[in-house]
Design a protein around this nucleic acid. Sequence first.
DNA 1: AGCCGTCTGTGCGCTAGGCCACATAAGGTG
DNA 2: CACCTTATGTGGCCTAGCGCACAGACGGCT
Lengths: 237, 237
Amino acid sequence: MSVSSRVGRPPENRLLAALPANEYERVLPNLQQVSFALGEVVYEFGGHLDYVYFPTTSIVSLLYTMENGTSAEMGLTGNDGVVGIALFMGGGTMPNRAVVQSAGRAIRMKAKVLQDEFALGGQFQHLLLRYTQALITQISQTAVCNRLHSVEQQLCRWLLLSHDRIKSDELIMTQELIANMLGVRREGVTVAAGRLQDSGAISYVRGHIKILDRQKLEDTVCECYRVVKDEFDRLLG
Amino acid sequence: MSVSSRVGRPPENRLLAALPANEYERVLPNLQQVSFALGEVVYEFGGHLDYVYFPTTSIVSLLYTMENGTSAEMGLTGNDGVVGIALFMGGGTMPNRAVVQSAGRAIRMKAKVLQDEFALGGQFQHLLLRYTQALITQISQTAVCNRLHSVEQQLCRWLLLSHDRIKSDELIMTQELIANMLGVRREGVTVAAGRLQDSGAISYVRGHIKILDRQKLEDTVCECYRVVKDEFDRLLG
DNA sequence: AGCCGTCTGTGCGCTAGGCCACATAAGGTG
DNA sequence: CACCTTATGTGGCCTAGCGCACAGACGGCT
């Protein structure tokens, strides 16, 4: 992770952008821009956090890794959210890992600053809690989707959720990594991605996925995607 | 749901019991005891909530029902939690249902009272947020467990989580209902429960499950159970 | 260019769990 | 007690997805 300059106005993160001017001005001196590399670990299982991160151009996955090494994603955070909710929820640590799924920038804020601001009970607190509720919806829907839907549908959901959180139509992501996120085999992703490719929805070349026809993905995806999207729009839109 | 008398001291709900005396005295006049019947719906998908509920002897399941009618449980709340987190998280409604899984009592509190108390930022707010974080862990672990573990392991997890939240060794619950909770077929539950019965862990007769040997369940269950239990103990213990 | 490591495609056998169709059993009710 | 509803046990068949093995294919490096 590399730390660079100060943060501009308005911020590229939707949570920060939704703050009233006076609250944003108050926290602005405490914000820094950082860059995340692909695969970088933002926090570990049970690890302590010194900062919270508001992704701007990056996407961070929340994963849980089992004792036997297999893993699955619970949710993902992009420019509409914040990584490190344990810091204001009061738990300090979370029993999961956060890994950078798409390289890019984020804005960080010292834990203490966040906690003090949260304790004031203003709009900042409000926004963080609403985001947390939206995240709960995302995690819940992941639970249901894992149980009831096919790998192909889940891949569509994952592609659409990622696409929503990034400006580009190209995702940098091997099938191996996607398999880890979805908690399925790499070959399962190959087959599902192959079908999406045949239908013309995406093209896939060695870690570079291009979204060619978003509508086709939306036609294939299960209802889980829309439930999550609608809830984010309702709570943060 | 039947409303009865006032609520005693100390309360049978762990969240309320953890309140400092002065905060509990302040909310006490606004608490009422209610009884939930098995299968009663506490709130519907997107429905409005006038009260939050602190279960004491009841257990409430948080479920999501798909468009095609199949459903799956995201988490469950007993005397260690509260039903209706959307009321203090700010969203107002949740995109899921809450159904009484085990008949019993709960303590209810008017939404407005809860919100005012939450806004004071005292211990009550603190406890509610910590509980919410524990719930997030539970939901996450459900997501992972749905993806990676067998029906038998999930049934064990479910039995243990329920057993922890109830005084009795007997659960009133048909296999059909358990199947809906776990998002699996009824026959799948029959087979898994049959195995547990053969091993002497439980006995199962027409909607009455007796836990005969808790240790055997703990030997069969996946790690998900302990992760959730440890996190609840850490955050609320 | 040639090599090599990393991705991706594919096939095969296997199993868990889905769907369907019944058989049985346990209580409740007249 | 006879009947009927509801709950549970069982089997047969089918599919999705796993594990494994290996065959390309692409791209970076020397």
